[in-house]
Design a protein around this nucleic acid. Structure first.
Length: 629
RNA sequence: GGGGUGGUAGUUAAGUCGGUUAUAACGCCGGCCUGUCACGCCGGAGGUCGCGGGUUCGAGCCCCGUCCGCCCCGCCA
């Protein structure tokens, strides 16, 4: 660390000035502007070893405590906070100048590092020292703030204000921390993948409009009247063409645009870590991703992750957790009862294709009062929780019998069999849903996640706080009223063993697709792609695409695949979501510097906005009159 | 497209059954204070109760409409 500010090149005549310092006499370059010479340290750097040094710090007035004579300033930048003490006996001019200082003024201070003696603040990394002010410059003043920046308490400002004055929100240390983390993650991504032989390549944001899938943002083309570019919803096709082009291994930290409704964890533009490799198998795609994640968690969070992340098929995830992105930080897995209850004669059970339940052990079940069970029943009946017809519950008594609305309908033998299957103990509470596949699993999943939160199951399970999971072997298609649609996208390869099923039973075809799940959040997804034109043709046929549609949307890709495409596959990771989870944030907005509101607007800039008639005319766009006029 | 919730001082919130001058904390302004660190003490200013309409003797509060934020469903190949 330099003991004094680096001399500025603009000063031809270094002048010696003697500060009337109490502990030391120091030599500095006096300057018309402290800015010219630059700061000697950031606001988080100084320690006890620096006592005696003459320093120049720049930053914002985080807090000011004016004792009339002594004034204390906490000076803040993104590196930390340093206390500045202003003593009228030592620096009368600076003391007089400091009278004007208020919160968030941007200032320069020059002074001497002194020990705080008995007044150490153990809460601050710089708490053993303070800077005794000799010279003060105010770069800029600040109006009364629209919200309290210094307090750093999220509840201190509503979302509206935070977004309107985003540049102030971003000054808060908690958000600064998030963006430091995000930057490190991006840097590690580039380092790790480049070291593994990946090329960082760019793909266009302005691409061909292809209806189907996510809605596109459209950009009118002035040079091509009446025609539009679409903003890329993903680099999917281009990265596959990179493989045809022989790039072998590609990655990109890439913005994607989707004009869909927003959520807490969904923004209209978001950032992907996009990866594609030639001669891929799922394992060859997953391995470098795991290496990247492991390195990021270790370097940024200091967390050791397992050498290999667990794998689970989609079918198993659905059967055990009712979700394709299960939270495996705790147990409470689904237990299948169908075979036991098949002969029960109880219509609620015999009439449903699926009968499954959860067993809340006696150590967790105290909180499940009758009132709470009624609330859970309401929950599973909600449409967004699956819309189950009801929830069968039972409290297991000391003798194994049930306290339950169902008790009188079921034989003692059946109760005993269910207890045994579910591992019920005295005091356990059993929650059972009987319905079709979709409702049973969705309702039990909603129930499981609700119990996770209300019974604090994650903390009480005592597992590692970072539970990664690869979910594999997704169905290739989903059946809708209008026929089959791709679960992932139409270039996803079926498993080789399932190829015959493309003709006979497409619903049974499983894909070479994989999602990376962290603590119940999908943070990435990918697949092995189809590189055989005959397989691609069959998939398009199942999807019901006409030859004309195929040629229009993907003609250039299929044409490219006529010229020796290598087998290939890849993945895309959600950089925003990963940053959010690493930062412990609960909203994507806390890791995106300038996010949009739920209606897709920017409260700070006022976008989107209208355009003037001249420009619209150039683009051959005419506005339709609003409805009702 | 649908469901929920919120909008009151610069900020965050309280505001009872519809009833006197709309309340508190922080911030702001002024004064005092030489070891604070969310400094303290004294005093003060500050309001289009989101906007528009209605009911009423009287509306922050009730009704209708509307705008905006947030959460969720649908949607997100």
């Amino acid at each position: 660390m330099p003991a004094s500010p680096a001399p500025g090149t603009s000063f031809t005549r270094p002048v010696v000035a003697v500060f009337p310092a109490r502990r030391t006499t120091v030599t500095v370059t006096p300057m018309s502007s402290l800015l010219e010479n630059g700061r000697s340290h950031d606001c988080g750097a100084l320690r006890h070893a620096d006592v005696g040094a003459t320093v120049v710090l720049f930053g914002w007035v985080h807090r000011r405590r004016d004792h009339g004579a002594l004034i204390f300033i906490n000076l803040r930048d993104r590196f930390g906070i340093t206390q500045v003490v202003i003593d009228p006996d030592l620096a009368p001019a600076a003391h007089a100048a400091a009278a004007v200082l208020r919160g968030e003024f941007c200032i320069a201070v020059a002074g001497v590092v002194v020990s705080r003696g008995d007044n150490i603040n153990a809460q601050m990394p710089t708490g053993e020292i303070e800077v005794s002010l000799r010279e003060l410059e105010v770069f800029s003043s600040a109006d009364v703030l629209p919200f309290n920046v210094a307090d750093d308490a999220e509840l201190d400002a509503t979302e509206t204000h935070r977004l309107k004055y985003r540049y102030l929100d971003l000054r808060r240390p908690s958000l600064q921390k998030n963006f430091v983390l995000r930057s490190r993650l991006a840097t590690l991504t580039r380092l790790t993948l480049a070291e593994a032989g990946f090329l960082e390549l760019e793909t266009p944001y302005m691409v061909k409009y292809t209806p189907g899938g996510a809605r596109n943002f459209l950009v009118p083309s002035r040079l091509n009247p009446g025609q539009f570019y679409a903003l890329a919803e993903s680099p999917q096709i281009f990265k596959q063409l990179f493989m045809v082009a022989g790039m072998d291994k590609y990655f990109q930290i890439c913005r994607c645009f989707r004009d869909e409704d927003l959520r807490n964890d969904r923004q209209p533009e978001f950032t992907q870590i996009d990866v594609e490799i030639s001669y891929a198998t799922p394992e060859r795609v997953q391995a470098p991703i795991e290496a990247l994640i492991r390195r990021a968690w270790k370097d940024i969070l200091g967390a050791e992750l397992p050498q290999q992340f667990p794998r689970m098929t989609w079918a198993e995830a659905m059967a055990r957790y009712g979700s394709d992105k299960p939270d495996t930080r705790f147990g409470l897995e689904f237990i299948d009862l169908k075979d036991i209850v098949a002969e029960s004669g109880f219509r609620m059970f015999t009439g449903a294709p699926f009968v499954k339940g959860l067993c809340v052990g006696p150590e967790h079940s105290e909180a499940l009062t009758r009132g709470r069970l009624d609330k859970l029943t309401e929950l599973v009946k909600k449409r967004e929780s699956g819309g189950a017809k009801g929830l069968a519950w039972a409290r297991v008594q000391a003798d194994g019998s049930w306290q339950s609305p169902l008790a009188k309908n079921l034989s003692a033998e059946l109760v005993a069999a269910i207890n045994a299957r579910m591992g019920a103990l005295p005091g356990s509470v059993l929650l059972i849903i009987a319905d079709d596949f979709h409702v049973t699993h969705q309702a039990l999943n909603a129930l499981r996640l609700e119990l996770r939160d209300s019974l604090d199951l994650v903390a009480r399970a005592g597992r590692s706080p970072w539970q990664f999971l690869w979910v594999t072997d997704f169905p290739l298609f989903e059946r809708t009223d209008k026929g089959y649609v791709s679960s992932h996208h139409p270039f996803t390869s079926p498993r080789a063993v399932d190829l015959p099923l493309l003709d006979s039973d497409p619903a049974q075809v499983l894909a070479q697709a994989y999602d990376l799940v962290l603590n119940g959040n999908e943070i990435g997804g990918g697949s092995i792609r189809i590189h055989r034109s005959d397989v691609q043709a069959k998939v398009f046929a199942v999807l019901g695409l006409s030859e004309a549609q195929i040629q229009h949307k993907f003609g250039f890709l299929l044409e490219a695949f006529r010229y020796g495409p290598p087998p290939h596959g890849g993945i895309a990771l959600g950089l925003d979501r990963i940053s959010m989870l690493m930062a412990g944030a609960t909203s994507l907005r806390d890791v995106i510097a300038f996010p949009k509101t739920q209606k897709g607007t920017d409260l700070m800039t006022g976008c989107p906005s209208g355009a003037d008639d001249e420009q619209l005319a150039e683009l051959f766009i005419r506005q339709a009159p609003p409805e009702g006029t």
